[in-house]
Design a protein around this nucleic acid. Sequence first.
DNA 1: TCCGTCGTTGACTGACCAGTCAATCTATTC
DNA 2: GAATAGATTGACTGGTCAGTCAACGACGGA
Lengths: 220, 220
Amino acid sequence: MSSSGRAGGRATTSRAKPAADKRRLILDAAVRVFARQGFHACRVADIADEAGVAYGLVYHYFGSKDEVLDTLFLERWNVMLEVIRQVDGERIPVREKLAAIASFIVDSYRHDPDLMKVIIVEVTRAANSFGDTHIGTIRDAYELIGGMIADAQAAGEFKPEIDSRFAAMAFYGAIEQLLTGWIFGLLPQGPGDFERAKWEVVETVCGGLQTRAGDEAGVG
Amino acid sequence: MSSSGRAGGRATTSRAKPAADKRRLILDAAVRVFARQGFHACRVADIADEAGVAYGLVYHYFGSKDEVLDTLFLERWNVMLEVIRQVDGERIPVREKLAAIASFIVDSYRHDPDLMKVIIVEVTRAANSFGDTHIGTIRDAYELIGGMIADAQAAGEFKPEIDSRFAAMAFYGAIEQLLTGWIFGLLPQGPGDFERAKWEVVETVCGGLQTRAGDEAGVG
DNA sequence: TCCGTCGTTGACTGACCAGTCAATCTATTC
DNA sequence: GAATAGATTGACTGGTCAGTCAACGACGGA
């Protein structure tokens, strides 16, 4: 199985950038294996098999099994941070900023559900292992969103009674739980469901944060 | 430290209900160890040491390491399901129902942060291990909350455009992310912060779900 | 006092697996 | 076509740890 390959194509250019290719091959295989079996339950041999390379090659490109997951997480999370920073710089209403972030995360899931599953299941909540390692990077995202909300409060778009850090957590938490629902097969994942979810998350959270609505039905 | 005990008290009644006591001792120790090191990173010997009992005793009361975590999760989650069902039966506004649920979960964390940390970190999101095992039980909670919201929509309390199952996930997700913030040390945990968080989560989510407010600032 | 039951002990084992490393292959250069 | 460098291979090792089990202890009943 592993030694079949090289079918067809020009042999001349077949070794154009072998190193980078194999590395990517291993990363992509790892996503599938981690998503299917979980990081702890899978063996490095499973990743190598899935990638169609020898066991030792994984250690040629990565220092450890952990480093493979670290790489996958950072690759994606840094893209998200970049998107958030870019959105934050635009001169548009908060609601649109938050919509753009929700949209990016939902699209990330739609585009590569396995990768998002791995990030959420193995990193984002793993308080004793990878989550702890990457807490600084994870925190950056929460704080960027929190700052965005604080600005909106200062500008009078959002009401100031709700702590901006809390609001950021509620917003991100709602999205992550949405993905969790998809991951566990608890929520429908039809083509329309993704777009609808983007709208719903913004509508729900922003509805509660916006000023103007100000109804004080006095609950207790 | 662990072998000091039995200080003082009547020796006569010291063996009143030894079996149950040791079992509980092990469960409580496991909570601490799982919270501190994580389920995968700790050894059964760590649990036994923490409880001050012999290694083998863990296997006298539990069939496996997994069973210890299963027991901890089910004990607590079933209490929560009971609370949700009871709240659902009362004739009060949805907002108060959701406030009661948020309050229960936040108080659970305040009362035993280690246990809630273990449940969230090791079970609730562990799509490939314990989460998968207990998905039915976890789902029960989401569906109960979803039903509660659907009823409110039928009664005109909440607007019907937002899918009730989605709303339930957003609500629960906001709370869980709140606890995650506390677990990671990202949010303040002063005495007032817990009460405030209860109010904020209800205000945020219900604000977006309620009818009446209906502002349509037309975003695009 | 002897016996039976059950809680308790901890040394041991069998399996598993991350990481190592020496050998082999491939391509490029002179 | 020999030499060099880097990519690739996979058998092997060293350590870890869940789960087992034979023995021990404490207590109540006969």
